[in-house]
Simulated assay, not measured.
Amino acid sequence: MLATGDDQRPFVGQTLWSGESEQGAAGLAWDWVFLPYGVVALVDPLSLVTNLQFLSADGEVLAPMESVRQLNEIVHSLPWQHEVQRRLSSH
């Protein structure tokens, strides 16, 4: 996690999640913002960066816009918001 911010501007940062699979390394990154009342949100749910490739039921590669839904489901299933809140509270 990388973050910047101060009393005048909200904290913003980037998060990178990565792991190994049978096919090799996989990664997913996104920008976030720390909003009032401790809310951490994606800056832009359409601007996730990844090396993952999604396939249709027929084995066809999904277009980027079709993959965005899959990527957002992955991000929302990860405990990244709690980790951001924890790290920022230690500053």
Results as ranks from 00 to 15, higher is better:
M1D: 09
A3E: 10
T4L: 12
T4H: 12
G5V: 14
D6N: 15
D6I: 13
D6R: 13
Q8V: 15
R9Q: 15
R9Y: 12
R9F: 15
P10R: 01
P10N: 09
F11D: 11
V12F: 09
Q14H: 11
T15H: 03
T15Y: 06
W17S: 05
S18R: 08
E20P: 00
S21I: 09
G24Y: 05
G24A: 08
A25V: 10
A26H: 14
G27H: 12
A29N: 06
A29E: 13
W32M: 03
F34I: 01
F34C: 08
F34G: 05
F34K: 12
L35V: 13
L35D: 12
L35F: 05
P36S: 06
Y37K: 15
Y37G: 07
L42A: 08
L42S: 08
L42E: 11
V43R: 13
N51I: 08
Q53G: 11
F54Y: 07
L55Y: 06
S56A: 06
S56V: 10
A57P: 00
A57M: 04
G59K: 12
E60I: 04
V61N: 00
L62P: 05
L62M: 11
A63H: 01
M65H: 03
M65F: 03
E66A: 15
S67H: 03
S67M: 05
V68Q: 08
R69E: 11
Q70H: 14
E73K: 02
I74C: 04
V75D: 02
S77L: 02
P79W: 00
Q85L: 13
R86V: 06
R86Y: 04
R87T: 06
R87N: 09
R87H: 01
